[in-house]
């Protein structure tokens, strides 16, 4: 009997969480479309979410592009197709790895930071204080982060695309005997606008997921330091999982398979 009680409690808890998240998302979207929009706060968050994520996103994209070039070369070599490197690198980076790597990195950096900040505000009553100062906490805290993340992520993904392709180019020309001009020509000729745009659309969705998970877990953190720690972990784990799940869904929708 205890097993069933445990399963039941787990299922009920999960349903309650989904319901809370749906309501939270609904309130955030309502606040998003009702004026005023805090431009100052949005700019500040773009700086924090977008600009300060550039180093980590750039570095990971560079190495991802490099290792992709190396693996494709070694794999292609088995059946004499090593010349395919530039085409596969640009396809893999723009469609998948650019947005996903940027998403996961920003998830680790930003979802955690948002959850920790809002969670601390919650346990120190700063969120209640916002209410008493006639300010809607959702509008003041959540909306600027959502908007900033949705704007920042496609830009970060675009930069990750460029740096990732460049990483592949560096490895291919430096150690795989590719000629630079031919590598670049093959890259440019092969990549289509659809490859790039689909990646940027994904990145915008990932940005929404990251900011939403950070805010949601921060707002619902309980207790003191331990609660905030748990909220931070939950924000990173849930946004990472949702990014990969959304990636699959978006890929099947965007490319119709």
């Amino acid at each position: 009997m205890n097993i069933f009680a445990g399963i039941g409690a787990g299922v009920l808890g999960l349903l309650a969480d989904i319901g809370r998240l749906a309501m939270f998302t609904g309130r955030a979207l309502v606040a998003l479309v009702s004026p005023p929009l805090y431009g100052r706060l949005i700019m500040g968050q773009i700086l924090r979410i977008g600009y300060f994520s550039l180093p980590v996103v750039g570095l990971t994209a560079f190495f991802t592009g490099g290792v992709l070039a190396l693996q494709i070369y070694l794999g292609g070599n088995r059946f004499g197709a090593e010349a395919i490197v530039p085409q596969v690198v640009v396809l893999g980076i723009t469609r998948e790895l650019g947005p996903v790597i940027a998403g996961l990195m920003v998830s680790g950096r930003v979802a955690a930071a948002i959850a920790a900040e809002i969670g601390t505000m919650k346990v120190t009553e700063q969120i209640d204080a916002l209410t008493t100062l006639a300010t809607n906490p959702i509008k003041y805290l959540v909306v600027p982060r959502l908007v900033a993340a949705v704007i920042s992520m496609p830009i970060l993904a675009g930069i990750a695309d460029s740096i990732g392709v460049f990483g592949g180019y560096v490895v291919a020309t430096a150690s795989l005997h590719f000629t630079g001009s031919i590598y670049l020509k093959n890259t440019m000729d092969f990549a289509t606008q659809g490859d790039i745009v689909s990646g940027l659309v994904k990145a915008a969705v990932f940005g929404f997921i990251i900011a939403l998970m950070g805010c949601y877990h921060g707002f619902h953190s309980k207790g003191g330091a331990q609660g905030v720690g748990a909220a931070t972990t939950a924000a990173v784990v849930s946004s990472s999982i949702l990014i990969l799940a959304a990636d699959y869904l978006l890929t099947s929708v965007l490319f119709g398979r």
Binding site: E117, M121, T124, E125, Q126, D128, A129, T132, L133, A134, T135, Y140
Partner: peptide
């Protein structure tokens, strides 16, 4: 309404005067 919270609940991302002026500017 105005409220004084137990722990102060000051916004630590803002300066002291911005805290005091918060209700005037945002509200």
């Amino acid at each position: 309404f105005g409220m004084l919270f137990q722990g102060g609940a000051l916004f630590d991302s803002l300066l002291v005067w911005e805290n005091v002026a918060f209700g005037l500017i945002q509200g």
